[in-house]
Design a protein around this nucleic acid. Sequence first.
DNA 1: CCGGATCCTTATAGATACTG
DNA 2: CAGTATCTATAAGGATCCGG
Lengths: 221, 221
Amino acid sequence: MTRTYGEGCPIALSLDIVGERWALLVVRELRLGPRRYRDLQAALPGITPAVLSKRLKELEEYGVLRRRELPPPAAARVYELTEWGAGLEPVFQALARWGVRSPVLPLTGEVSADSVMLGLRTFFAEPVADWSATYEVTLGREVYRLRVEAGRLTELARGPAAAAPDVLVRATKAAWQAVLDGADPLDDAVAAGRLSVTGDVDSLRRLVEAPRKIRTRAPAG
Amino acid sequence: MTRTYGEGCPIALSLDIVGERWALLVVRELRLGPRRYRDLQAALPGITPAVLSKRLKELEEYGVLRRRELPPPAAARVYELTEWGAGLEPVFQALARWGVRSPVLPLTGEVSADSVMLGLRTFFAEPVADWSATYEVTLGREVYRLRVEAGRLTELARGPAAAAPDVLVRATKAAWQAVLDGADPLDDAVAAGRLSVTGDVDSLRRLVEAPRKIRTRAPAG
DNA sequence: CCGGATCCTTATAGATACTG
DNA sequence: CAGTATCTATAAGGATCCGG
């Protein structure tokens, strides 16, 4: 931390730690679990290896993430958030909820599969209706498992569901995103085969409609 | 926005807008109301005029703040948050609550009077005990008014209380901060004259003790 | 004075190539 | 695979100056 705000304000302190370019996006990529160097590079289009290395080193020093060597046969080096680093979750939620209401800038560009799924957690924070179900969502090669209990999202993780889920979805990332955004009605997407659904479609409907109400846009000015 | 992340993720979008150096601290200084260029410069030690001008221009373009000319006799140019810009409040709360738990970096340096008072709002978000009172706090030349209703902080603004408040406090910024941090017990500070209190000391005690419980530190690692 | 703009220097990020 | 090394482009830091 050569360039520092050096204030006694906790906000300035946070920005000294995660306020540098790319830092918060590196952390974002670790929200759903450990990642390898090249996964991070792939998920952060435009970051250069030198900057990624530097950020990983700094964030490790500050205690936001740690480096861990997986034992053989995996034998990979991964980065994962510390407990304190995982505490940035409310910051991500707040930033996402604010950014989505931007009156001037559009929301265009690529989104990682992780981010699409995390959008669900961000905009579906409060219980909406009382239902419970387990889900497994496959987007390309990425698989996620979800659990809703009493209308509350209690689990969102990478990897397949442990037991047979109530609903099994397979789609492209774009198709899934279109349904979540409300651009593509669920029934249309299923009928046209853009979403392949096995199990209880009503539970899926509840899931994709849950986050909808938050996503409104602020007036300009 | 020359350097942009250009992602479809709302977090990346937010960072394109307020992620540049100094941007969020400029916004922070406007949380309690309009400020002049000069005030911002004074509140942001280390910022250069060129950078401040650039940030103000960008933040105005994005719709985070607006420039306004006060009519005579004030005849000053001030910057104030738009409604959307004020929507960054949850981001500040999340950052402050996270930063204060930093396991490695200490919290040292100067803090503006605004920030000290806003810390009260950040760490006293939920009702703690059931009481109501009005306050007027004078720190050096800065005066603030506060209102607690049913154990909830419902008003925090610059300027004196409209009607006679239940409690009137006068202190230096440092002395007030020491009491809020718990480093200086309220009774000691009052007895020694570091805090000059007029009115109901018990209501003041409730106020300064309300935010205490949040401020714990996370374990390192 | 206030509200900046200008000029020069230094630090950080982007681009590309390369190595243990 | 997981980074370094090198070079260039940009942005921030520091000081000074200018117009209303």
